[in-house]
Amino acid sequence: MNSRSSSVALIGETGRRNEAPILNAALVAFGEEGFNGASMREVAKRAGTSLSNLYNYFPSKAHLLAELLRRANDELLDRTSRAVERIGDGPAARLREAVKAYVEFVVDHQLAALVAISEVRYLQGENRDQVVRARDRTQAIFDEIVAEGAASGLFATPYPQDAARNIVTMCSAISTWYHDTGRLSREDLAQQHAHYALALVETRPGH
Rank of each mutant, 00 (worst) to 15 (best):
L65I: 00
T138I: 06
R128I: 02
V168N: 05
P158Q: 05
R128T: 01
V84S: 09
G125L: 11
L114T: 05
A72Y: 12
L114P: 01
P59N: 06
R135P: 02
G90D: 15
R186S: 09
V131Y: 01
H195V: 11
S185E: 08
V115W: 04
D188H: 13
H63P: 04
A164N: 04
R135H: 10
A116N: 11
A151D: 14
V84H: 01
A156M: 07
H109K: 02
A112H: 01
F142K: 00
T138F: 01
Q191T: 11
A93V: 10
D143N: 14
S118R: 14
V132D: 04
A194W: 00
P160H: 03
A72Q: 12
Q192W: 14
P158A: 13
Q191N: 14
A112S: 05
Q130T: 12
D89A: 15
R96N: 12
H109M: 00
Q191P: 02
I167D: 03
D143A: 11
R165I: 06
L111K: 05
L198Q: 03
S81A: 15
S185Y: 00
G149A: 09
L111G: 02
V120Q: 07
V103N: 04
R128W: 06
L154S: 00
N127L: 09
S60F: 11
N166D: 13
L68F: 00
H109Y: 15
S175P: 09
Q124M: 03
M170Q: 11
R82D: 14
Y159T: 12
V146T: 10
A93Y: 00
L68W: 02
L114A: 05
P158E: 13
Y122L: 04
I141M: 06
N73I: 01
A92G: 05
A98C: 05
R186M: 11
Y196F: 15
R82V: 02
A101W: 06
E126W: 08
A72V: 06
A150E: 12
R133D: 13
M170K: 02
D162K: 12
E144C: 07
L76Y: 07
Y102T: 13
D143V: 10
R121D: 10
L69D: 09
E85M: 11
Q191E: 15
R94V: 00
R137A: 09
T181I: 08
F142H: 05
W177K: 09
P91M: 08
T80F: 04
N166Q: 13
P59A: 06
P158R: 14
C171I: 09
R183A: 15
E126D: 13
L69F: 00
D108A: 10
A93L: 01
Q192N: 12
D78T: 12
V146C: 07
V146D: 09
H63L: 05
R137P: 03
P59Y: 00
V84L: 02
Y159K: 13
A116G: 06
R133Q: 12
E85W: 08
A83V: 03
R137G: 01
Y122N: 10
T138R: 09
T176N: 08
R133S: 13
A164F: 05
E119G: 01
L184Q: 13
S152K: 11
S81M: 06
P158I: 00
P158F: 03
E187C: 05
S175D: 09
E119Q: 15
D143L: 06
A150N: 07
S81V: 12
E126M: 08
A93C: 07
R70V: 12
A151W: 05
A83S: 14
V120M: 07
L77P: 01
A194V: 07
